[in-house]
Amino acid sequence: MDIRQLARGTVEWDRLERVFHTLVDRYDREVVRVQFLEADNWLSTPCVVDDEFFVKIVTRQNALVHAVLTTGRNVGAFSSGTEGFFDRFDTPLEMVEHEYEATRRMRESGLNAPRPIEAFEANGLGVLVLEYLPEFETLEELSPEEVADLAPELYAMLSTLHEHGLAHGDLRAENILLSDGDLYFIDATRMREDRSAETAAYDLACAMAVLEPQIGGRETVRAAATVYTPAELLAAREFLDFVRLRPDHEFDTTQLRSEVEKAADLGSR
């Protein structure tokens, strides 16, 4: 069994049925058609309902795994010379309410994100209902040429997110979608709002870590420099080693660090 599937656990069928009966009642339908998705994640059981709604079902075990991951990330943040800035959730309901609110705030700031519909608790499970995007590609599925064209837009979206007092906290290729020609952010996690400088630098480091394997360090940093100042690039550099420790990021830290330093040096002249 895959480690992520083991950590995520399984939800008893009768509990899932109660969730779907709740959806039938809430949306005044006679029945709903459910398609479970094989998703590479630790923190929910995802499914599509009636080809209209994307639904995440979160268990207490999912909340516990999130708490463990959060602790590990905060410990890792010390490697960058800062206190931890990730926040944990105590219950499944808190997890889905946060994602609902984060998605709503992203859309209010003018960014593309699936439309949030509702978040509620059913039979001890957290349930998040979002708009379903039927056709999309993740950033890792695109060609290097497509990624290079989209890189400045990605950085501009991230900058807009931070300008509105938000942070993503879990920016990786599978959380950046291209649908009908538009980039979307999904799956933002909870970050401490009083640590905006650090969280913005961390997000930028994650974005560069996502792009470098596909378009190389030089192009990655060149695109970032069209949006970010030399000081902001250097702040992100301090988090590259921390990001490299995460199992969902594989990139050339040395090359990326070198390109950041070159760009910052040129930009400060």
Rank of each mutant, 00 (worst) to 15 (best):
D241R: 15
L111A: 05
A122S: 15
Y184R: 10
L233R: 09
R190L: 12
P144W: 11
G216C: 08
C206Q: 14
L234H: 08
A113C: 01
G217A: 14
V129H: 00
A151G: 10
A225F: 05
L128S: 06
L161C: 07
D187K: 08
N123S: 14
L142W: 04
V129S: 01
R222H: 08
Q214E: 12
D187Y: 03
E131T: 07
L177A: 02
T160V: 12
R218P: 02
V210K: 00
Q214V: 09
V221I: 13
F239H: 15
R190H: 13
D194V: 08
P144A: 06
L234I: 02
E108C: 05
A200H: 01
A151M: 12
L245I: 10
M191P: 00
I117H: 03
Y155C: 01
R246L: 15
E108K: 10
E121G: 07
F185C: 09
R115F: 10
P116G: 00
A156V: 11
E212C: 09
E238Y: 03
G217I: 06
R192K: 14
F120C: 13
E108V: 01
D180Y: 12
E238P: 03
T220S: 13
L245Y: 11
V127N: 03
T226F: 07
H164M: 02
A173Y: 04
E140N: 14
A167G: 15
E163K: 13
V147K: 08
G216K: 01
L233A: 04
R190N: 13
L166D: 01
G216M: 01
E135R: 08
V243F: 06
E108H: 07
L150T: 09
S196F: 10
Y228W: 15
A200C: 10
H162K: 05
E193H: 11
A207L: 13
P114V: 06
A113S: 13
L154T: 05
A207G: 02
N175K: 08
A119G: 09
M157A: 01
M208D: 08
R222W: 11
M191G: 04
D149K: 15
T229C: 05
A235L: 11
T189V: 15
E141K: 05
T189L: 10
E121N: 07
L234S: 13
E137R: 15
F185R: 00
N112Q: 15
P144C: 07
A236R: 03
E232W: 00
M157S: 01
L130I: 06
D194Q: 08
S143V: 06
Y184L: 07
D180A: 12
A225W: 02
Q214A: 12
V210Q: 01
I186R: 03
L111I: 10
A148E: 14
E141D: 14
E121Y: 09
D194L: 08
V227C: 04
E131V: 00
R115K: 14
G216H: 04
E131R: 10
T229Q: 05
E153V: 12
D203L: 11
S179T: 03
E137P: 05
E193C: 08
A207S: 06
V147R: 11
P114E: 09
A207P: 00
S109V: 09
D180R: 14
L240M: 07
V210E: 03
T199Q: 04
L183D: 13
A236C: 08
F120W: 03
E140S: 15
A205M: 02
